[in-house]
Simulated assay, not measured.
Amino acid sequence: MFIHRGTTDFLHRLTLWEHLDFVAAVEELPQQEFQKHAKQLLSTYKLTEHAHSYPTTLSKGMQQKAMLILAMITNSAVYVIDEPFMGLDPNAMKLFLESIEKERAKGAGILMSTHVLDTAEKVCARFIMIHEGRLHVAGTLDEIRDQCQLPLGSLYDCYHKIAEGTGNE
């Protein structure tokens, strides 16, 4: 999607609720279903009292939760999530992980990019490891362990073996 600079300025002038309403309109979500789902997500992520605040006035963690809510309001078949844990406190991380698990249980595909390898190891079924812009290994944790020759290694251990093998971290 191409966003013109004026559009970006426009988006900064919307409250969190107006952002949600905008996404619902673009996605043509039924109004009653949207209202119910939006209120539930705002409550779950403890942002109900901030629904009519501008995202720029929220803390980094609250902004991150707002972005997650905006993504989840659509009930997508596929979610592409980049660094979802940045700025989230442990409780918000738990809520997010529970939310994506619910989406996965409904059949949604989830592609997540993260540097938080210990959490990724706990929640992801398959991995690709990129270092210095190059794909080094891919597969399940056991397959990556085999490829890295670390039968009991963590994802973190495997990444460091790859990084050491390329000469840089």
Rank of each mutant, 00 (worst) to 15 (best):
L155Q: 01
N91A: 12
M129R: 04
R145D: 01
G87F: 05
A24G: 03
A25C: 14
A66M: 03
L117S: 06
A51I: 01
M93F: 03
K60T: 11
I100H: 03
M72V: 07
M62F: 02
A25L: 13
K65F: 01
E121M: 08
Q63V: 02
G167M: 07
L141C: 05
H50N: 13
F22M: 13
A163M: 10
E83C: 04
L42T: 08
T15M: 10
Q32N: 09
F96G: 00
D9F: 15
L95H: 06
H131W: 05
W17K: 05
F85C: 04
T119G: 02
E27K: 15
A71R: 07
A105V: 08
H19Y: 06
D89P: 00
H19N: 12
T114P: 06
T114L: 07
Y156F: 12
S59C: 10
Q149D: 14
L68Q: 01
S59Y: 08
P84K: 00
V26D: 11
H136Y: 11
L111R: 05
L14G: 09
H37Y: 07
M86Q: 13
P84R: 00
T74I: 10
F127Q: 05
I110S: 02
L20N: 03
L29H: 07
R126P: 01
V78P: 03
F34H: 14
N75M: 06
N75V: 05
Y79L: 03
L68V: 13
G167D: 08
I73P: 00
S76Q: 09
G87Y: 07
P30Q: 09
F127K: 06
T74H: 09
V116N: 11
F10D: 10
A92F: 02
D142H: 12
K36N: 13
V80A: 07
L16N: 01
Q64D: 06
A120Y: 03
M62V: 00
D157L: 10
V80M: 12
M93E: 13
P151G: 04
V26F: 12
G107K: 10
A108K: 04
G107E: 10
L20R: 01
L150K: 12
I73F: 02
A108Y: 05
M62H: 00
M67N: 03
E33H: 10
G61D: 07
Y54G: 02
K39P: 02
